[in-house]
Design a protein around this nucleic acid. Sequence first.
DNA 1: ATGCCGTGGAAACCACGA
Length: 258
Amino acid sequence: MRIATYNVNGVNGRLPVLLRWLELAQPDVVCLQELKAPQEKFPEGAIEKAGYGAIWNGQKAWNGVAILAKGEKPSETRRGLPGDPEDIHSRYLEALIDGTIVGCLYLPNGNPAPGPKFDYKLQWFKRLTKYAASLLKLNVPVVLAGDYNVIPTELDAYKPERWVDDALFFPESRAAYRKLVDQGWTDALRKLYPNERVYTFWDYFRNSYARDAGIRIDHFLLSPQVASRLMSAGVDREVRGWEKTSDHAPTWIELSEK
DNA sequence: ATGCCGTGGAAACCACGA
């Protein structure tokens, strides 16, 4: 089973690119972030025509997450993180697909830091960490995939020194990510590429993609029941070079059958 | 050192992103 995560930066503006990539890559499951579309404007028909069932948690203009599954509608198990009824951002969606719990998340950016947006990021992180612990306790296959908006280590940035004043690389952000992983999750890409620079995002400006000035912020965290089935992983980085593309590239993992 | 580009929504600019 191949599971992908892709921050599309606008699902309607990105639709041609998304459909082209789906046709090419044929992932079994896809987690999308930054739909930037209200619930009623999700392109359900086009995605269905491409062979995918979908559930989504939309929001006007910002945020928004979706889960697609080839040939079936994902069975929704959760919409939104627990712990803060005041939080109206659409940043979490979860489904049970083929016996695996797939959580699709879009963690807050947090800039400018410090400030209220950074506080919100850390709060959201805390809620995610608490909820993730409860998922681990289930002792079932769980994949937490998405845009974590965290550069975990210096190995995950083209020029780490450029990011020291950024919420994605603040010590608190990295510590929060480390604390989450240390519950017992496996960072799939880093597990398979322990010493290599693997990027999932390149700025639109400064010719970043051509210079390969990227960062790794889209991650897969695997529960032990899934980690043992991890066969391969990668980034479809050529998609980042397409016309009218997102600033993120699709990232994926391949799991063996149970 | 810098939102330099891009998206969406509202309004001929602004918020937001990383």
